[in-house]
C-alpha cells in the first residue's frame, strides 16, 4: 500500500479500502494469526481531547496485535498544558513510538503532525473536521451486515450540520454504485450545501425529510447521530433540538426486517435503550468493528499487512 498516514478517508482508494476490510475480516476469523505481528512495536496515542471508544479501541487493537501503547488521554496530562506545540509533542513522541494515533480539537493538527515526524500518523479526530477511522468502522460494519457496499438506501438522522461522521460516511459511500441517501434532520441542522453538491456530482439520489416516520419503510441502513451540545453557542437551541428524533420500538414497526441501525456513539437520548435488544440494532457490533479495522489499519501503515501468512 502506498499511503503512510491516514488524515482523511479520501487518502484511501477504493481498492485500498477493499483490501483493508478484507484484512479486518481475516483478523476477525483468525485472531491468533495476528497476535504477535506487532511484537516490539509501539503505538503512541496522543489524545488532546477526551475519547472513550476511539482511544480504547486503538489501545485494544495494538494490544491484540502484540504491541505496546504509550501516550496521554487529555491535554492536561501532557506538556501541551505548559504550552508545548503540536509539532514539538509529535517530534518527541515520534522518538518513542513506531506509529501515532492523534486526536486534537484544532482542525488540521494531524497535517502538521505528519509534516514533523517520520512515523505514520493516524487522525483519530481533528475537531469538527475529519474522523477517518470512524468512517472505516462504519464501512466495515455495513459490509459485514449487508455483504455489500452498493445498492442500498441509507438514512442519516439527527445533526447533519455539524456531524462530521455523517459527512465522511456520505463522502465514502459515494464511490459505490446505486446508493441513495435520505437526510433526516430539523431545518436548523440540515446537511451543508457542499455535501449536497458532492452527492449531485456523483449522481447519487438524495431526499431531505423532517420525520423519521416518513423515511423509515424504505431504509436499509439507519445511521443515527447525537445532537452535540459542544457545537452550540446557545444552550436554548441545544435543548430545543436535542430530542427532535428519538428512535424507539414503535417507530421501528414500519421498518424493514433487515434494517441495520448504526450510531457512532456515544448516544444520549436519540435511541431508546429498549431498541438495544432489537436484532436490527448493530451499534455495539459497530464499536467492536472499530477495533478490528484499527488493527488492520495499524498493520497496513506499518507495512506488516503482507507479512502474515
Amino acid at each position: 500500500m502506498g499511503i503512510r498516514n491516514l488524515i482523511n478517508i479520501t487518502d484511501l482508494g477504493t481498492d485500498e479500502l477493499f483490501q483493508m476490510m478484507n484484512l479486518a475480516d481475516d483478523i476477525i476469523e483468525n485472531p491468533s494469526k495476528y497476535s504477535e505481528t506487532c511484537r516490539g512495536k509501539t503505538l503512541g496515542t496522543l489524545f488532546f481531547e477526551p475519547s472513550t471508544r476511539t482511544r480504547l479501541s486503538f489501545t485494544a487493537a495494538m494490544m491484540e496485535l502484540g504491541g505496546n501503547v504509550l501516550g496521554f488521554s487529555e491535554a492536561a496530562s501532557s506538556s501541551a498544558a505548559k504550552g508545548e506545540s503540536v509539532s514539538d509533542t509529535v517530534r518527541t513522541v515520534g522518538c518513542y513510538s513506531h506509529i501515532i494515533a492523534m486526536r486534537h480539537p484544532k482542525e488540521g493538527a494531524p497535517v502538521v503532525a505528519a509534516d514533523r515526524t517520520t512515523v505514520p500518523i493516524i487522525n483519530a479526530g481533528d475537531g469538527g473536521h475529519f474522523h477517518p477511522t470512524q468512517t472505516l468502522t462504519d464501512l466495515l460494519t455495513i459490509r459485514r451486515e449487508k455483504k455489500r457496499l452498493d445498492n442500498m438506501v441509507i438514512g442519516v438522522c439527527g445533526d447533519l450540520k455539524f456531524g462530521r461522521t455523517v459527512h465522511s460516511l456520505i463522502g465514502a459511500m459515494l464511490r459505490y454504485e446505486n446508493i441513495e441517501f435520505v437526510l433526516i434532520s430539523p431545518v436548523e441542522l440540515k446537511i451543508p450545501q457542499y455535501v449536497k453538491d458532492a452527492m449531485d456530482k456523483a449522481n447519487a439520489k438524495w431526499t431531505e425529510v423532517r420525520t423519521l416516520e416518513e423515511a423509515m419503510p424504505r431504509l436499509d441502513i439507519l445511521y443515527m447521530t447525537r445532537v452535540q451540545k459542544e457545537r452550540f453557542f446557545n444552550e436554548e437551541d441545544y435543548i430545543r433540538l436535542k430530542d427532535t428524533y428519538v428512535l424507539d420500538l414503535k417507530k421501528l414497526e414500519v421498518a424493514k426486517k433487515d434494517l441495520t441501525i448504526l450510531h457512532p456513539l456515544p448516544r444520549v437520548t436519540e435511541i431508546s435503550t429498549a431498541v438495544d435488544d432489537d436484532p436490527r440494532a448493530k451499534y455495539f457490533e459497530q464499536a467492536l468493528c472499530g477495533k478490528y479495522i484499527r488493527m488492520a489499519l495499524i498493520l497496513t501503515l506499518l507495512g506488516l499487512d503482507k507479512e502474515v501468512k
Partner: peptide, 13 residues
C-alpha cells in the same frame, strides 16, 4: 480565518 484551524494556535506554521 477559521478560528478552529490549527494555524490559529500553532506558531510559525
Amino acid at each position: 480565518k477559521n478560528p478552529r484551524c490549527i494555524t490559529s494556535v500553532e506558531q510559525e506554521i
